[in-house]
Design a protein around this nucleic acid. Structure first.
Lengths: 178, 178
DNA sequence: CAAAAAGTGTCCATTTTTTAGACACTATGC
DNA sequence: GCATAGTGTCTAAAAAATGGACACTTTTTG
């Protein structure tokens, strides 16, 4: 099952001119480019359409440009679609906003004006990066490693925090080669 | 086991004046404030000392201020101490650098000049945030959610990718209320 | 310092979960 | 319309997790 093009992208920006520019710029890379001028109905849209990536502008409330709206919708989308990658885009190169966006689960943070080639490359990177899903055992092993690391090797404490018995943790450590 | 102060912080910055300022600013919050003027021996240092947080400057190569050095050391430290939180600090409010830093696992990104109170608050947040560790069931549930989401509800495929049988996935979904 | 407390590593028997395989049924595609 | 793929549910057998126990070592602390 080879992929030729990068599925459907949903672009949300309140500026029609920007949407037009992005539609043009992205149509070469994505099978479909959906656009919305307001994020209000994005959850409905996402339940109807099969979207593989969202490009979300950060500023919608007129005159309020601190990105609160964008952060709100980012979190709302992620809550219902934790696997859907979301790339943020904003006119204001605000480090603090970028940090909060990424901490809230955004895949990347782009500033306007953007370079078309770079934008496409970054979007491709995001989709390429999310390709393989870890096995349950791998996630388990990783988390166990974390727990033991954090408990400075105290197996009993680690087991408690993991919500399993000490013996089970021994078993898993052996089986998962942690 | 109550914590009164926030353990040991290791500050790495090539500017002695900044180290002095930070030592003063952080000594009220941390039990110990260790400092280094170059990151070259940081891994040795970390194997000798029990550090709970690293504050890492991004620019060390004279005249080269793109943060490559900082990113390199960030990744080097995280590779050997995946549980150790690292906060980046830089004189250049560079969004792209912040994005790469966070993607490489930094806990936060601070720009100079900093506000002492805000710095301390952010460092505390980082340490507070990493306090409670998710149980194995929680991580499992989260990852299962991810898998099913990514497989667009195809249970059989999700189970395969998770490395478990379809029936087990049904069991877990019921038990974990996914 | 020595007693108390906490942690280790390894048993056990019992309960729970996972497994492979099967089943009738329902979408989906060619 | 026939084939393929997925669903939801069921077995019996295999595997893993559980609470409890044990002798022993390390850490804390009065």
């Amino acid at each position: 099952m080879q992929k030729e093009k990068y599925g459907t992208i949903l672009v949300i920006d309140d500026n029609e001119a920007i949407l037009t520019a992005l539609r043009y710029c992205l149509s070469g890379t994505f099978q479909r480019v959906l656009t919305m001028t307001a994020p209000d109905n994005v959850l409905k849209k996402l339940s109807q359409e099969e979207v593989s990536l969202v490009l979300l502008d950060m500023n919608f409330s007129l005159g309020v440009n601190n990105g609160q709206d964008g952060l709100f919708w980012l979190r709302a989308i992620r809550k219902h679609h934790p696997e859907l990658p979301i790339v943020l885009i904003t006119a204001y190169a605000d480090v603090s906003l970028a940090v909060r966006g990424l901490k809230s689960g955004a895949s990347d943070f782009i500033t306007k004006p953007w370079d078309n080639d770079e934008l496409v490359r970054k979007l491709k990177d995001v989709l390429d990066a999310q390709n393989d899903l870890a096995t349950l055992d791998e996630v388990e092993a990783e988390h166990i490693q974390r727990a033991i690391d954090r408990c400075h090797g105290n197996v009993k404490l680690a087991a408690e925090q993991l919500g399993i018995t000490r013996q089970t943790l021994y078993n898993k450590m052996k089986k998962l080669e942690v």
